[in-house]
Computed example of a mutant assay.
Amino acid sequence: MMEFLNNSILRRRTTCIAMHLWRSKMIQKASVVRKISTTSPKLTVMPAWVIDKYGKNDVLRFTQNMMIPVITYPNEVIIKVHAASVNPIDVNMRSGYGATALNMKRDPLHITTKGDEFPLTLGRDVSGVVMECGLDVKYFKPGDEVWAAVPPWKQGTFSEFVVVSGDEVSYKPKSLTHSQAASLPYVALTAWSAINKVGGLNDKNCTGKRVLILGASGGVGTFAIQVVKAWGAHVTAVCSQDASGLVRRLGADEMIDYKSGNVEEQLKSLQPFDFILDNVGGSTETWALNFLKKWSGATYVTLVTPFLLNLDQLGIADGMLQTGVTVGSKTLKHFWQGVHYRWAFFMASGPSLDEIAELVDAGKIQPVIEQTFPFSKVPEAFLKVEGGHARGKTVIDVV
Rank of each mutant, 00 (worst) to 15 (best):
N6H: 12
T15D: 06
R23N: 12
S24L: 14
V32Y: 04
V33I: 12
R34L: 11
T38K: 13
T39K: 10
P41M: 13
A48S: 12
G55F: 06
N65K: 14
I68W: 03
P69I: 03
I71G: 05
E76R: 07
N87F: 07
V91S: 01
T100H: 12
K105H: 12
R106W: 12
D107G: 07
H110Y: 10
T113L: 13
L122W: 05
R124W: 07
R124G: 04
V129T: 09
G134D: 08
L135Q: 14
K138M: 04
K141L: 04
G143A: 03
P152F: 10
F161R: 07
F161G: 04
F161L: 09
V164K: 08
S170V: 07
L189V: 11
L189Y: 08
W192T: 01
I195K: 02
V198T: 15
K204M: 05
K204N: 08
K204G: 04
N205P: 02
T207W: 12
K209D: 11
K209Y: 11
G215A: 06
G218M: 04
G221K: 06
A233L: 08
A237C: 10
S244Q: 15
R248Y: 02
R249D: 15
L250E: 03
D253W: 05
M255D: 04
K259P: 03
V263G: 00
P272H: 11
P272V: 01
F273L: 06
F273Y: 15
D274A: 01
D278M: 02
V280A: 04
G282Y: 09
S283Y: 09
L292A: 02
K294Y: 00
W295K: 11
W295Q: 06
S296I: 00
A298Q: 01
T305N: 14
N310D: 10
G315E: 05
A317W: 13
D318F: 10
L321F: 10
L321R: 13
T323D: 15
T326F: 12
L332C: 08
F345N: 10
F345T: 11
F345L: 14
S349Y: 05
E358G: 07
A362M: 02
I365C: 05
V368A: 02
F373V: 00
P374E: 08
S376W: 04
P379E: 13
G392Y: 05
V395P: 02
V399Y: 06
